[in-house]
């Protein structure tokens, strides 16, 4: 290698460089604002028109809570709200237990056939919901389990929720819970468990006193995700419920098919409020446990 240095002539205009360095930042920020406007405007407009006086969802005629009172007086909507909640609570409870067990088994152990089991838990997440829906529909038809409803009192409301729908929800939620809990497990410092064992804790006590408490944010995060997915699900419920059973999204789909009214906007606003409070709960839980945000988003 020769020892001389090499002088290269660079074109350089101080003002232009200064301008360029600022321009990049400005255009990126402008784009960011526009992108968020794209994400939020439709929802904001939807909410605004739920307060419209007339039947129109595109011409503002005046403020009214009329559509909300109609919504609360509509027995079928109210029943579907209770159905949705019951379904979400039950399927989340089961899926959280199953998903956590799966996460522990898959993250902490090596055994034959692990890859196959691993992929099986990812499949329900990847498969499009329409495929999963018809799979379950055929299964319930063929197996004779059918669409028998579970007759139950939930907060004093008489519900009849088909077992098939509950099973369907558990089937996709289990995988989501397993993924979230596994992410948490993978982040966990294993030396803490070793420290516990070093301090005379046996396997069970270590799990009970160290692993489980540290895993809790992951489990709660997984449960919240499952709860949201269950509340939001339309396709699988629609195909596995048989006739006559409505959750709120199924009800809304039916209403949209019949025609657009601000009443749907009102129902949507209600659902929006529920999702929003779930998001806020999860934010609060996350900031308390100080987690990496990307892992906890449900991926």
């Amino acid at each position: 290698m020769t020892t001389q240095t090499e002088t290269t002539e660079f074109s350089y205009h101080p003002r232009w460089e200064q301008f360029k360095s600022k321009l990049g930042g400005w255009s990126l920020t402008t784009y960011g604002i526009l992108a968020f406007a794209f994400l939020y405007l439709p929802i904001i407009i939807l909410v605004i028109f739920s307060f419209n006086e007339s039947r129109s969802v595109s011409k503002w005629t005046g403020f009214s809570l009329h559509w909300y009172s109609e919504m609360f007086q509509d027995d079928r909507i109210m029943l579907s709200v209770w159905n949705s909640l019951f379904l979400a609570v039950v399927s989340t409870a089961i899926a959280t237990v199953l998903g956590t067990l799966a996460a522990l088994g898959l993250e902490r152990y090596q055994f034959r056939g692990k890859t196959a089991i691993d992929s099986m838990f990812y499949l329900p997440v990847i498969i499009p919901d329409i495929a999963m829906a018809i799979m379950l529909l055929l299964f319930f038809n063929m197996s004779g389990i059918g669409f028998t409803p579970w007759k139950v009192q939930f907060f004093g409301v008489k519900l009849a929720v088909p077992y098939s729908v509950i099973i369907g929800h558990v089937a996709f939620n289990t995988s989501f819970v397993a993924i979230v809990v596994r992410a948490r497990l993978a982040q966990m410092d294993r030396t803490l468990e070793e420290a516990a064992q070093d301090l005379y804790a046996d396997t069970w006590r270590t799990f009970q006193r160290i692993t489980l408490p540290m895993l809790m944010p992951g489990i709660i995060g997984g449960a919240l995700l499952a709860f949201t997915l269950s509340l939001d699900d339309f396709v699988i419920t629609f195909f596995t419920s048989g006739a006559g059973f409505n959750t709120l999204p199924v009800r809304v789909f039916g209403m949209i098919k019949k025609g657009v009214t601000p009443k749907i906007n009102a129902v949507s606003t209600l659902m929006l409020a529920v999702s929003l409070s779930l998001v806020i709960i999860s934010i609060l839980l996350r900031t308390r446990s100080g987690d990496d945000e990307t892992v906890q988003m449900g991926f």
Binding site: T5, T7, T8, F10, S11, Y12, P14, E17, Q18, S21
Partner: peptide, 10 residues
């Protein structure tokens, strides 16, 4: 050097 960016410095 002023506002000269890194790619234009020797």
């Amino acid at each position: 050097q002023g506002y000269r960016p890194p790619n234009k410095r020797p």
